[in-house]
Design a protein around this nucleic acid. Structure first.
Lengths: 151, 151
DNA sequence: TAAAATTAAATCGTATACGATTTAATAGTA
DNA sequence: TACTATTAAATCGTATACGATTTAATTTTA
């Protein structure tokens, strides 16, 4: 066995640099493309996409700490703190420091925040109708993405 | 046929709001997770991920206009102009206004920019080794993402 | 050909992302 | 119990994204 890097290794490496052969690039581009689909729809709710997934998490589980919210959304306090302050200024939630452990800030939906869920109910269907993909493919895509996320 | 929205519609809509059932959220999260894998590797080349894919595009096709580059990367001039100025300030490329049509700015790699490709050759393999996914799954994932991108 | 429409970059404002550091509070331990 | 370590948010700096507008150049068209 020859340990030297041979010409075919070089060609393989060259080919791996083509945008066409990247995995992350289509992942990143497709993600942004779909988020752009959300923008005009979420505008009506006065939410950005990141604000929207934050509300999704809170509609599922209210009164959660910033850390927990960050784990669910894969976001850190550097991103969440200003975002939550924004949502608070819009009257959708309250940030309340935990009396039993002052390090924690818990996030509670206001009535307005809870009611916004009704307006969001048809968002997923509106998005689905914009994406031309078979159900089977969508399920498979979800499965593959979760492999990456759970890795 | 009853045209009223029935309870099962409501339940379906409710369920579609769960983070667990979203398609865009894992897409967005997985994309960011993989870009985070790139960060320490690209640090050695002094590139961010967006700068890296810009260099990938230019290593494939040099002397391209900002508009064309944007089409390939799905980015607009609002993102590319400052990014290209940054790469220019690092001596990796030159931005030269087209004499035959002064509206266009063409981007040309410098020698330093071309040589950086050699250091980038092993990046894809380093990334692959960080992602625990079967080849078949990766190919399938790529196929599904391209459905979204070409839609 | 002169005015109108189109096009390409650049610019601007807003909103993320995220690593790194700071601040404050709590937990662990010698 | 003091001292240290850990933890959670907040803060800071840098770098995107992207819609909207502006500027300048070119094309189209009345």
């Amino acid at each position: 066995m020859d340990n030297k890097i041979c010409e075919s290794d070089f060609n393989r490496n060259e080919k791996a640099l083509l945008l066409e052969n990247q995995l992350c690039f289509p992942l990143y581009s497709a993600s942004r493309k779909i988020i752009r689909l959300y923008t005009p729809i979420l505008d009506k709710l006065n939410l950005t996409y990141t604000q929207y997934i934050t509300m999704l998490a809170l509609w599922e589980k209210d009164g959660i700490g910033v850390k927990d919210l960050g784990s669910r959304l894969y976001l850190d306090s550097g991103t969440l703190t200003p975002l939550l302050k924004k949502l608070e200024s819009q009257g959708l939630l309250n940030r309340i420091r935990d009396v039993s452990d002052e390090r924690n800030v818990n996030v509670f939906l206001t009535d307005k925040g809870m009611k916004l869920k009704q307006q969001a109910l048809n968002v997923p269907a509106m998005i689905s109708s914009c994406i031309d993909m078979q159900i089977n493919d969508a399920i498979e895509l979800q499965r593959l993405l979760k492999i990456i996320l759970n890795d």
